[in-house]
Amino acid sequence: MSLIKDLFTNWSVWRRPGYFESFDYSWGMVIDLDRCTGCEACVVACTAENNLPIVGEKRFSENREIKWIRIERYWSGEYPNAKLSFIPMLCQHCDQAPCEIACPVSATYHNQDGLNTQIYNRCIGTRTCAVYCPYEVRFFNWFSYTWDAPLEQQLNPDVTVREKGVMEKCTFCIQRIREAKDHAKDDGRRRLREGDIQPACAQACPTKAIVFGDRNDPDSQVAQMASDARGYTVLKELNTSPSIVYLRRVDQEHV
């Protein structure tokens, strides 16, 4: 009964689009394509940090690899004048994520940090979220993967190992965010500071092309870089409002 009362008295809250009036944090990323060299250090770092399985050559050729961040390569032009462009692609943590409505069991939802979370324990493997995702950054555990000894020793204890039939994707290294929040609490701070957190990919990037931070803080590097004239979001026309802003590469021809 009190629930029904709650439903009607707070009706405007339940009808508010997106529910959160403002996010506590709004974690975001800026990827400067002008700095990116396509070295894939981020891919390796992500694999190590998040216990991504190495699926092997056969599974890879079947398009069943699990890489939460990948470097997409696009060739343009014919051979002598061929040009290569690349873009690191990872979960965009959209504020209006198409994937989130898809799940029948609420295994994916939007948390108050503005993160698009995936709850492995709850996932039943309908794969609907992956179909709805326009960026193809959700990965399915087609099999249960194992790590040969001694590789199981290097698994990150802060991150679960996923079993077969579970969807997974980039979490913005949520284990690091949690840890930083705990430290901040220990230090008696209410908010995280710029630079407290770095996801594995940003940490590993040799050219500092990946910058991570809180977009709610106007002084943060992310917020300032995001308003750069070169900034754009991928597949903007789909109106997913991603959290990742890419900075366009400056070509010689265009200068």
């Binding site: 069943r64 992956a130 087609w142 099999f143 249960s144 077969k164 039939g165």
Partner: peptide
């Protein structure tokens, strides 16, 4: 027993 990988689906063609 082995997982849905027994079927022919893969990334992008999730269904």
């Amino acid at each position: 027993f082995v997982g849905v990988g027994a079927a022919g689906m893969s990334r992008a063609a999730y269904w």
